[in-house]
């Protein structure tokens, strides 16, 4: 069954198209990753899907409900952790969990039970009596995510939930989410961190400038773009002319990162490499170091976004 069905969704703020005519189809029981650089339109998409804002155009069905016509019915069935922190400054950690459960109409005993479990799962037991305003950013973020599990839901939206968490808390959260998915939860997960998406997501959509560039599983993405290799060349000294020399080589994209480092992406890396060496020696440009590595997901992401930018 499909959990989220969006067609021709757009949201404009004045002349900015924050979300530009996207189509979305998310299957139940999976983690759907929404990946994009800052300002790509991830948070705006989440606000659309969670009915916080209504689309300028398009149709949206969440869990079989028309989200534009019946937003409240949708909100009853979903959980939302927005990118922005949200907390009651003067409440203690345990009180904020309990009150949040109360707001969702969870019976008092059940609230207490869930709270104890979540305090353990999110490593909050030591700080349960601390007030939210006295917590660190990472602790507050953990409370915010934990709090959402006080109530039942079919679909959970998480907007960059791991920002501010240390690596071990990050890993714990991802594993916690994986377990929840096994029990039938569907998660819509935005991030700009690829390794996270690769670890957690069953499907990944890459978004930039309000448009979805591609949707696929992490493995398929690697297969599709995996033939490509990244060649890195370090020069001994700055040679600004080198880019224009190298850009004559067909079938590759050349970047001069900072005066002395050149990155080349190509699917024909062997051929390109030979030509690079030839051009460099013809022009008496000395190398310090050279390497060719298979492109990782991070690079694929950058490539997809970059290609999109150069098309415009």
């Amino acid at each position: 069954m499909s959990c989220i069905e969006g067609k021709n969704l757009s949201k404009s703020y004045g002349s900015t198209k924050a979300v530009d005519n996207i189509a979305l189809s998310v299957k139940s029981g999976q983690v759907f990753g929404f990946l994009g650089p800052n300002g790509a339109g991830k948070s705006t998409t989440i606000k659309l899907l969670t009915t916080l804002i209504s689309p300028s155009e398009g149709s949206l069905t969440i869990l079989g409900i028309d989200a534009v016509k019946h937003p409240l019915a949708v909100r009853h069935k979903i959980g939302v952790v927005l990118q922005q922190p949200s907390y009651e400054p003067t409440l203690t950690v345990e009180k904020s969990l309990e009150k949040y459960g109360m707001m969702w109409n969870v019976p008092k005993n059940e609230c207490k039970k869930r709270m104890e479990i979540l305090l353990q799962d999110f490593d909050l037991a030591d700080i349960r009596k601390k007030r939210n305003e006295d917590l660190s950013i990472g602790q507050r973020r953990r409370v915010q995510v934990a709090r959402e599990f006080m109530h039942d839901m079919e679909l959970l939206f998480l907007d960059e939930p791991t920002v501010g968490l240390d690596p071990s808390a990050r890993r714990k959260l991802l594993d916690f989410l994986k377990n929840k998915v096994k029990t039938g939860l569907t998660i819509f997960y935005t991030t700009h961190n690829l390794s996270e998406a690769e670890y957690l997501c069953d499907e990944i959509a890459i978004i930039d400038k309000g448009r979805i560039l591609t949707v696929d599983s992490p493995d398929a993405l690697k297969k599709r773009f995996g033939k490509e290799k990244t060649i890195k060349i370090h020069l001994l000294e700055k040679q600004p002319i080198v880019v224009s020399l190298l850009s004559r080589i067909p079938e590759c994209v050349v970047d001069l990162d900072n005066g002395t480092t050149i990155t080349i992406h190509s699917e024909q890396s062997e051929l390109v490499l030979l030509q690079v060496l030839k051009i460099l020696s013809e022009n008496k440009i000395e190398l310090e170091d050279l390497s060719a590595v298979p492109t990782n997901l991070e690079e694929i992401f950058l490539k997809v976004v970059r290609d999109n930018a150069s098309h415009n």
Binding site: L52, R75, I78, V80, L82, S86, E88, M103, W104
Partner: peptide, 18 residues
């Protein structure tokens, strides 16, 4: 004021409330 400043207004509006 606090709900807006500390993100609770959005959080409540994304929950089971109008």
């Amino acid at each position: 004021w606090n709900d807006r400043r500390h993100g609770m207004f959005e959080q409540i509006m994304s929950g089971p409330f109008t």
